[in-house]
Lab assay of single mutants.
Amino acid sequence: MTYKLILNGKTLKGETTTEAVDAATAEKVFKQYANDNGVDGEWTYDDATKAFTVTE
Protein backbone atom coordinates (compact mmCIF):
# COMPACT_ATOMS: atom_id res chain seq x y z
CA MET A 1 0.00 0.00 0.00
CA THR A 2 1.21 3.53 -0.74
CA TYR A 3 1.45 6.05 2.09
CA LYS A 4 2.20 9.76 1.72
CA LEU A 5 4.15 12.14 3.94
CA ILE A 6 3.42 15.86 3.81
CA LEU A 7 6.27 17.93 5.24
CA ASN A 8 5.48 21.39 6.62
CA GLY A 9 8.88 22.12 8.10
CA LYS A 10 10.48 25.48 8.74
CA THR A 11 13.25 24.76 6.23
CA LEU A 12 11.82 21.80 4.30
CA LYS A 13 8.40 21.57 2.68
CA GLY A 14 7.10 18.96 0.27
CA GLU A 15 5.74 15.46 -0.11
CA THR A 16 7.13 11.96 -0.44
CA THR A 17 5.62 8.49 -0.62
CA THR A 18 6.57 5.01 0.49
CA GLU A 19 5.26 1.50 -0.07
CA ALA A 20 4.59 -0.28 3.23
CA VAL A 21 2.59 -3.21 4.56
CA ASP A 22 0.81 -1.05 7.15
CA ALA A 23 0.60 2.45 8.60
CA ALA A 24 2.93 1.64 11.51
CA THR A 25 5.69 0.58 9.12
CA ALA A 26 5.17 3.68 6.97
CA GLU A 27 5.29 5.87 10.07
CA LYS A 28 8.70 4.46 11.04
CA VAL A 29 10.06 5.13 7.54
CA PHE A 30 8.65 8.67 7.48
CA LYS A 31 9.86 9.56 10.98
CA GLN A 32 13.37 8.44 10.02
CA TYR A 33 13.14 10.47 6.80
CA ALA A 34 11.99 13.57 8.70
CA ASN A 35 14.72 13.09 11.32
CA ASP A 36 17.38 12.69 8.62
CA ASN A 37 16.19 15.99 7.12
CA GLY A 38 16.04 17.89 10.41
CA VAL A 39 12.25 18.14 10.58
CA ASP A 40 10.75 17.70 14.06
CA GLY A 41 7.19 18.67 14.80
CA GLU A 42 3.59 17.62 15.39
CA TRP A 43 2.53 14.44 13.59
CA THR A 44 -0.96 13.59 12.34
CA TYR A 45 -2.31 10.70 10.27
CA ASP A 46 -5.41 10.57 8.07
CA ASP A 47 -6.44 6.96 7.46
CA ALA A 48 -8.86 7.92 4.68
CA THR A 49 -6.07 9.37 2.53
CA LYS A 50 -3.21 7.27 3.99
CA ALA A 51 -1.33 10.53 4.58
CA PHE A 52 0.95 11.53 7.43
CA THR A 53 1.61 15.21 8.05
CA VAL A 54 4.42 16.68 10.13
CA THR A 55 4.25 20.38 10.98
CA GLU A 56 7.01 22.35 12.70
Rank of each mutant, 00 (worst) to 15 (best):
M1Q: 14
M1P: 12
M1F: 14
M1V: 14
M1E: 13
M1H: 15
M1I: 14
T2V: 13
T2P: 05
T2A: 06
T2R: 13
T2G: 05
Y3I: 04
Y3F: 12
Y3R: 03
Y3S: 03
Y3C: 04
Y3K: 03
Y3A: 03
K4T: 14
K4A: 05
K4L: 10
K4F: 11
K4P: 03
K4I: 13
L5M: 05
L5K: 01
L5Y: 02
I6C: 06
I6D: 03
I6A: 03
I6F: 11
L7I: 15
L7T: 05
L7Q: 02
L7E: 02
N8T: 08
N8L: 13
N8R: 10
N8G: 04
N8D: 10
N8Y: 11
N8S: 08
G9N: 04
G9T: 15
G9P: 03
G9R: 04
G9D: 03
G9C: 14
K10Y: 11
K10W: 10
K10F: 12
K10L: 15
K10H: 13
K10I: 14
K10T: 12
K10G: 08
K10R: 13
T11N: 13
T11H: 14
T11P: 04
T11G: 09
T11R: 11
T11W: 14
T11Q: 10
T11A: 09
T11K: 11
L12S: 07
L12D: 05
L12K: 10
L12W: 14
L12N: 07
L12V: 13
L12R: 09
L12M: 13
K13A: 08
K13N: 08
K13Q: 12
K13T: 10
K13H: 11
K13S: 10
G14E: 09
G14L: 15
G14H: 12
G14Q: 11
G14T: 13
G14R: 11
G14Y: 13
E15N: 06
T16A: 10
T16C: 15
T16Q: 09
T17M: 09
T17H: 10
T17C: 12
T17D: 05
T17Q: 09
T17Y: 15
T17W: 14
T17G: 04
T18N: 03
T18S: 05
T18E: 03
T18R: 05
E19N: 13
E19H: 13
E19K: 13
E19I: 15
E19D: 11
E19Q: 14
E19Y: 15
E19R: 14
E19C: 14
A20E: 04
A20R: 02
A20H: 03
A20T: 05
A20V: 04
A20I: 02
V21P: 15
V21S: 11
V21F: 13
V21I: 12
V21A: 12
V21Y: 12
D22Q: 03
D22H: 04
D22A: 03
D22S: 07
D22T: 05
D22Y: 03
D22I: 02
A23I: 10
A23C: 13
A23F: 13
A23R: 14
A23S: 09
A23D: 05
A23G: 04
A23T: 07
A24Y: 10
A24G: 08
A24Q: 12
T25S: 12
T25R: 05
T25E: 13
T25M: 11
A26N: 00
A26D: 00
A26K: 00
A26M: 02
A26E: 00
A26F: 01
A26V: 02
E27W: 14
E27P: 00
E27T: 03
E27K: 09
E27L: 15
E27H: 11
E27I: 07
E27V: 05
K28T: 08
K28M: 12
K28R: 13
K28A: 12
K28Y: 09
V29S: 05
V29N: 06
V29M: 10
V29Q: 08
V29T: 10
F30A: 01
F30E: 00
K31P: 01
K31S: 04
K31V: 06
K31I: 07
K31M: 08
K31L: 08
Q32N: 08
Q32E: 09
Q32W: 05
Q32I: 09
Q32F: 05
Q32A: 11
Q32H: 06
Y33K: 02
Y33V: 05
Y33L: 06
A34V: 08
A34Y: 02
A34E: 00
A34H: 01
A34G: 03
A34F: 03
A34D: 00
A34C: 15
A34K: 01
N35P: 01
N35M: 15
N35V: 14
N35E: 14
N35D: 11
N35F: 15
N35Q: 15
D36V: 09
D36T: 09
D36P: 02
D36K: 10
D36L: 12
D36W: 06
D36N: 08
N37E: 06
N37H: 15
N37M: 15
N37A: 13
N37F: 14
N37G: 05
N37C: 14
G38H: 09
G38C: 09
G38Q: 07
G38E: 05
G38T: 04
V39M: 09
V39A: 04
V39Q: 03
V39F: 12
V39Y: 08
D40N: 13
D40Y: 15
D40V: 15
D40L: 12
D40H: 14
D40C: 14
D40K: 14
G41C: 03
G41Y: 03
G41S: 01
G41A: 02
G41P: 00
G41W: 06
E42H: 12
E42N: 09
E42P: 04
E42W: 13
E42Q: 10
E42A: 10
W43P: 00
W43Q: 00
W43I: 03
W43L: 03
W43K: 00
W43Y: 02
W43S: 00
W43M: 04
W43N: 00
T44V: 10
T44H: 10
T44K: 07
T44R: 07
T44C: 10
Y45L: 01
Y45W: 04
Y45Q: 01
Y45R: 01
Y45D: 00
Y45S: 01
Y45I: 01
Y45V: 01
Y45N: 00
Y45T: 00
Y45F: 07
Y45G: 00
D46R: 03
D46G: 02
D46P: 00
D46E: 05
D46C: 08
D47N: 09
D47G: 08
D47K: 08
D47H: 11
D47L: 07
D47V: 10
D47P: 15
D47Y: 08
D47M: 07
D47W: 08
A48S: 11
A48W: 07
A48H: 09
A48E: 13
A48D: 11
A48R: 11
A48P: 05
T49D: 08
T49H: 09
T49S: 12
T49L: 13
T49P: 02
T49A: 12
T49V: 07
T49Q: 11
K50T: 03
K50P: 02
K50M: 11
K50I: 02
K50H: 12
K50S: 05
K50L: 11
A51T: 15
A51L: 13
A51Y: 07
A51S: 14
A51P: 00
F52E: 00
F52S: 00
F52Y: 06
F52W: 10
F52Q: 00
F52A: 00
F52M: 01
F52L: 00
F52N: 00
F52P: 00
T53V: 06
V54C: 08
V54H: 01
V54Y: 03
V54W: 03
V54D: 00
V54Q: 01
V54G: 01
V54R: 01
V54E: 01
T55R: 06
T55W: 08
T55C: 06
T55F: 07
T55A: 05
T55P: 01
T55Q: 06
T55H: 07
E56G: 05
E56K: 04
E56Q: 10
E56A: 07
E56T: 08
E56P: 06
E56Y: 10
E56R: 04
